[in-house]
Amino acid sequence: MKVRINGEDLDFSSLVSIAEFIIQRKIRPETVVVEHNGVILDRDKWESTMLKENDALEVLSFFGGG
């Protein structure tokens, strides 16, 4: 299953929820915001939302900027 995450195509061999993906990648959930197919996804929906073929996921956070 191919999913586009932060502009890069990643292959997943099994079904995975957004919450599981975040944990697998050792991302601290409280530090990021997730946009799923162009829609901002509330944190309480991460567990119930499964990644599907051709989904687009943006995992974003704050960095230094002027």
């Binding site: 990648r25 956070s61 960095f63 230094g64």
Partner: peptide, 9 residues
């Protein structure tokens, strides 16, 4: 100010 960017997963 801060900026929003993609996290390096």
């Amino acid at each position: 100010t801060v900026a929003l960017r993609r996290v390096d997963t």
